[in-house]
Design a protein around this nucleic acid. Structure first.
Lengths: 116, 116
DNA sequence: TTATACTACCTTGTATAAAAAGGTAGCTAG
DNA sequence: CTAGCTACCTTTTTATACAAGGTAGTATAA
């Protein structure tokens, strides 16, 4: 049992990503329909690591909330894939999250400048 | 009991802030020593609301991790205040989080551009 | 001098959500 | 026909923000 006092920098970095995951996933899917592995790869390339155990429940939540829809598609090599795409609700929510992201950036960058 | 299916936009906005709180609090304190109400006010002005129940435990965590230190100071009107300031460890961690924030901004803005 | 208001501290319980770990099953190739 | 890969999904654990509730110092005014 490790008590883990102290701040783990990696953990803090991870925290920063967390709240933005939903937004990032919508961003990825908005480019073109994608299935889980596509999404994980895209986020990895953007240095935003996610694992399956995080992604699947999140996709289900977004689907149930009506932001995403999916259809099955067979693969040339392996089991069939669930391709997700944005619904019109999803597109509209994404637009709003875009605004939220911009505001968040301004807020934090204002704090950063105030320090210099 | 409200089942709350669906995505609550307000809630999502809140999520976005969450992971960045630690960073923001360090930013605020780095400007000058501050006690809880100072910090809450500063974050409020930056549109990053926090409540006491969130802040106090977080300050304790950062203190125990060696990023912050505090000293008591009497107030002209009311009970004494705990003024926090960054330790040298705190300053160095903040520098690293600054880098993390910049990377995060690039990553997400890259995803945003890729969509347009 | 006591009561009320206010400020400041802190803790406990709850809800949410990411991550770790484990599980099922289709498809392919040897 | 079996070993390995890919893809899906679920359960359990852990972390953490927030809501709510609690203690106590100080000031003000009856």
């Amino acid at each position: 049992m490790s008590l883990e006092l102290g701040i783990n920098l990696e953990n803090t970095r991870a925290q920063m990503r967390k709240g933005l995951l939903e937004y990032c996933i919508l961003l990825v899917i908005s480019r073109q329909k994608a299935y889980a592995s596509d999404i994980i790869l895209a986020l990895k390339q953007a240095d935003l690591l996610v694992v399956e155990g995080t992604l699947y429940p999140l996709l289900s939540r977004l689907k149930n909330a009506g932001l995403l829809d999916y259809h099955w598609q067979e693969s040339k090599s392996g089991p069939p894939r669930k391709y997700y795409e944005l619904t019109s609700l999803g597109t509209s929510i994404l637009k709003q999250l875009d605004g939220t992201w911009k505001n968040l950036q301004s807020s934090i960058n204002a704090l950063r400048k105030a320090r210099l």
